[in-house]
Write a protein that binds this DNA or RNA. Structure first.
Lengths: 355, 355
DNA sequence: GTGAAAGCGCTAACAA
DNA sequence: TTGTTAGCGCTTTCAC
């Protein structure tokens, strides 16, 4: 009962078609079938060099015959690492986060990791838990887009749980970080608009107590105005959320209130910009003839809106690639070739809405 | 050396800030600190009822003091299940797949699962591997959107690896499946168009050797025409891919070739429809006055295009919820309350493009 | 209510 | 080149 049977589910396997997903054939079973030791099977599975070809073949045959599949849990337990990394984002509805997932999965796979997804809904407690490693010891590390962390939360970080932050750099210098070139790109937008003769620029999506992202974009915007010798009109710093409805409503209210119109609108992101575009269309304001519109993120719909939307296109592949690479370095403990802080590059995609 | 020290990484932990992510404090350590047996710690961790409150508190304190976090690998190894399920999709760029991820993660979490993402790029070999369970024994099951499987691939399925297919039902009856109401919704679209006086309907995105999805939508389209007593014009069955550029190009070519114009276009999905919309706009064809346009999927951009796009909105939450529930039932081996085949409901969101 | 101990499947140190 | 074996951290059966 004990020596011959290494598993508890030998009986009733056929009837138990759906149960006990794991717990199939073990190395021990393969070893027995092939007439070798478990060690040899392990050697074959892990492509260990010094196995006689004939032995290897016998083991491979046995594996195929029995349908052997290595057990990840056992391997992880032994190796003290799971090969899993978490991608922690607020929400997949936000386009940029969904766009991040593909490249992250691809980059991770190239380094031998599998990616699992956690959704925080921007909840501070959940974001903190990632930082403090206060979850299952399931992942070797995490890439997180944090929305609600505060500057001093870095203190609470669990030292031995690798984390890379993407996006806002709330925890300056405390955690490795891959950022979006918010200030630089905003500057480039203003230069573009000023360079095509626009003089009265609106910043749409401003908020008094803003995210770092918002502040950086505002800063770049103001710097750009100054550089171009343009006036920063207070009534053209328009408060609004960053969703389409927000952009649409803000523009409608602005016009309804009879406030002076800009000749260019720089929205904090594409959603907001597209909402604005819609409002302008509804009111018969021609884009770009009367007002130019520029967004941020280069969401796919920016390319296909009517008119197509000029937008800042951050290098998402670089974002993902750097994040995964930095995480990998933390996990393997290798000295970092990357700086702990990286800002990826961007392109300004000039389209119909600003020409 | 052996009795007092249960871990090999006791020394040098502080210097080893990044290495050995797992392998932290074990139950054994907590037990020793709290002066109880490992069994008791386990009982506390798992909320076992019969633990004296005072003992429980002592254990909890020790856990907090040492920063204990349970080890998922060990637990999985013991339990013969990992609590992980895979969401296997071709690509996250396709809107619907990304939209699926959020609800799947949420539903899964409610049932105690964590979701990990695998990208197939529509590669047949990778899709097959999911079916045959020929990967790591890492997940308890998989939810897959398969693009390249063939009808008889079901044979090769590994009986004890739970899988639910979402979308196309290539493996009819062989694998539990949650589908999109392609035929029914297409029928509803034609009824809507015919009901608003349209007579010459184009189907955009037809392909000779089509996916099941395409065939079902075609079928619903044709049934609808027949029902409404309309003619199915062959030149209005327009071959095209389903991406925006495809839709745009197809319409451009159609017009350039001087082929007769429809008074309504039903595109196979929103991307394609939005491409068509753009082509019509560029050529000065008014939508919906001259031509109505309808899409499929109810992507977010459909709501915000100009004009906003009428579209079929499949119930994605239901899709995700049913898929996770069906998978869970397979995993736990419970008799299925659901049918092995489910088609979710839908809504036709009528917007400006068809009014 | 709690303790002792077996063993899940695997890797790797030690032997041979 | 291959065999033997000791655990990785956890759950759980069997005692007490």
């Amino acid at each position: 009962m004990s020596s011959g049977c290494s598993r508890q589910y030998d009986e009733g396997r056929d009837s138990d078609v759906y149960g006990a997903a794991l717990m199939a054939v073990s190395m021990h079973d393969v070893a027995r079938a092939a007439g070798v030791s478990q060690r040899t099977v392990s050697n074959v599975v892990n492509n260990y060099e010094y196995v006689r070809p004939e032995t290897r073949q016998r083991v491979l045959d046995a594996m195929a015959a029995l349908g052997y599949v290595p057990n990840a849990a056992a391997r992880s337990l032994r190796a003290a690492r799971t090969g899993l990394i978490a991608l922690v984002v607020p929400d997949f509805r936000a386009r940029l986060f969904a766009d991040l997932a593909g490249p992250v999965v691809r980059e991770a796979e190239a380094l031998g990791y599998t990616v699992l997804i956690e959704l925080t809904e921007g909840d501070r407690a959940r974001e903190l838990k990632v930082l403090t490693g206060d979850r299952n010891q399931l992942t070797d590390g995490a890439i997180m887009v944090a929305l609600s962390l505060r500057p001093d939360d870095g203190q609470r970080r669990r030292a031995d749980y690798p984390v890379v932050l993407v996006g806002d750099e709330v925890l300056e210098g405390q955690i490795p970080h891959v950022g979006i070139p918010n200030r630089e790109a905003s500057l480039a937008v203003v230069r573009h608009l000023a360079g095509t003769g626009r003089r009265r620029l609106m910043l749409l999506g401003y908020a008094p107590d803003q995210s770092q992202t918002g502040r950086a974009r505002l800063q770049g915007f103001l710097e750009g105005l100054e550089e171009a010798g343009l006036t920063a009109y207070e009534e053209l710093l328009v408060e609004a959320g960053w969703a389409r409805e927000d952009g649409r409503r803000a523009i409608e209210e602005h016009m309804d209130a009879g406030r002076p119109m800009p000749d260019a609108i720089f929205a904090m992101n594409d959603s907001c910009a597209l909402g604005a575009l819609r409002a302008l269309y509804d009111r018969g304001v021609r884009v770009p003839q009367e007002v130019a519109v520029v967004g941020f993120d280069d969401a796919e719909e920016a390319r296909y809106s009517t008119p197509s939307l000029t937008s800042v296109s951050p290098n998402v592949e670089a974002l993902a690639g750097n994040a995964v690479a930095m995480l990998h370095e933390q996990i393997t403990g290798k000295p970092s070739g990357h700086e702990p802080r990286i800002v990826v590059d961007f392109q300004l995609k000039v389209r119909e809405s600003s020409q």
